[in-house]
Design a binder for these strands. Structure first.
Length: 256
DNA sequence: ATGGTCGGGCTCCGA
C-alpha cells in the first residue's frame, strides 16, 4: 500500500500534473494540501476518471485539504478538534482500507512575533492532543501533510538564512518533537536518516535547480503503521515539470 | 537588507 502527501499549490492550476502523477506513481492513498478552491469547485470528475475517490475540505482562495484513495473513504472528520472558531480548511481525517489517515495543512506562521505564529503554535498543540487520542485507539494511523516545520537544521539548505523563519523556530520544532515523541515514526527519516530529503523549494532564485530546499512535508506513522513500513522517499520528478507546485510528493509503502 | 515568483481573485494577500 503506497501512501503519499503533496501540497499542490492550487488543485485547479495543477490538475494536469496531479492526474499525470497519479498515473505514473500509482499511490493507493494521497493526502493533498493547498487546494485553493471551494469544496464544490474541486475537480471531482477528473479525479474519479483517474480511478480515485475524493473527500474534500475546501474554502475560497486559501488552504484546502483532500484525501484521494483507490478504495472507499469512510468515517471522515472535517476539522481538527479543539477550536470551533477555527474556520480554516486545514485538516481532514478518514479511514481507508483499515488505515486511519489525516491530511494536514499546518499554518505557516510567518512572520514570527505576530498572531499568525501564535495560531501556528496553538494548531500544533491541538494536533498534539488529537494525535494522543489517535494513538490510544491502537489503530494504524498516518498523519501526513505540509507540516510547515523543518524538524532539524539537517532539513534546511541554509539554517542561517532561515533562522528567523517560523518554520525553523525552536518553539515550532519543540512542538513537532512533542508529537513525534508520543511514539510516531517519521517515515522519510526511518529510511534516509541524514540525507537531503527536501520536499519544498521556493520559486525565487532558481532554488530547485540549486537544491536550496526544505523538508517540511512529513508522514508520521503510529506504531501499528510503522510495523508495516517497507519503504519511504521523496519523489522529485513533478517538481521539475513546467509550472510546478513549489512542493513535491513524499511517500511511504506499508505491507498489506 | 531587500526582493526575488507564484496562484487566487481582484488591486493586494498568503506563501
Amino acid at each position: 500500500m503506497k501512501i503519499a502527501t503533496w501540497n499542490v499549490n492550487s488543485v485547479k492550476a495543477r490538475l494536469a500534473h496531479l492526474t499525470r502523477w497519479l498515473k505514473e506513481a500509482a499511490p493507493d492513498v494521497v493526502m493533498l494540501q493547498e487546494l485553493k478552491c471551494q469544496t464544490a469547485d474541486f475537480p471531482r470528475l477528473e479525479i474519479e476518471a483517474a480511478g480515485y475517490q475524493a473527500e474534500v475540505v475546501g474554502q475560497k482562495a486559501y488552504n484546502g485539504v483532500a484525501i484521494l484513495a483507490k478504495h472507499k473513504i469512510e468515517k471522515p472528520i472535517h476539522a481538527l478538534p479543539g477550536d470551533h472558531g477555527d474556520d480554516h480548511a486545514r485538516y481532514l481525517e478518514a479511514t481507508v482500507g483499515g488505515l486511519r489517515v489525516a491530511s494536514i495543512y499546518l499554518p505557516n506562521g510567518n512572520p514570527i512575533g505576530t498572531d499568525k505564529f501564535t495560531y501556528k503554535l496553538k494548531f500544533l498543540e491541538r494536533l498534539r492532543a488529537h494525535a494522543l487520542e489517535l494513538l490510544a485507539t491502537e489503530a494504524p494511523v498516518v498523519l501526513a501533510g505540509d507540516w510547515n516545520v523543518c524538524p532539524t537544521d539537517e532539513d534546511v539548505w541554509d539554517p542561517k538564512a532561515m533562522a528567523k523563519d517560523a518554520l525553523c523556530q525552536p518553539e515550532s520544532r519543540a512542538a513537532f518533537r512533542s508529537i513525534l515523541h508520543q511514539g510516531w515514526t517519521d517515515a522519510i527519516r526511518a529510511f534516509h536518516p541524514h540525507s537531503r530529503e527536501y520536499t519544498y523549494w521556493d520559486y525565487f532564485q532558481n532554488r530547485f535547480e540549486r537544491d536550496h530546499g526544505l523538508r517540511i512535508d512529513h508522514l508520521l506513522l503510529s506504531p501499528r503503521a510503522a510495523d508495516r513500513l517497507t519503504d519511504a522517499g521523496v519523489d522529485r520528478v513533478p517538481r521539475a515539470w513546467e509550472k510546478a507546485s513549489d512542493h513535491t510528493p513524499a511517500w511511504c509503502t506499508l505491507a498489506d
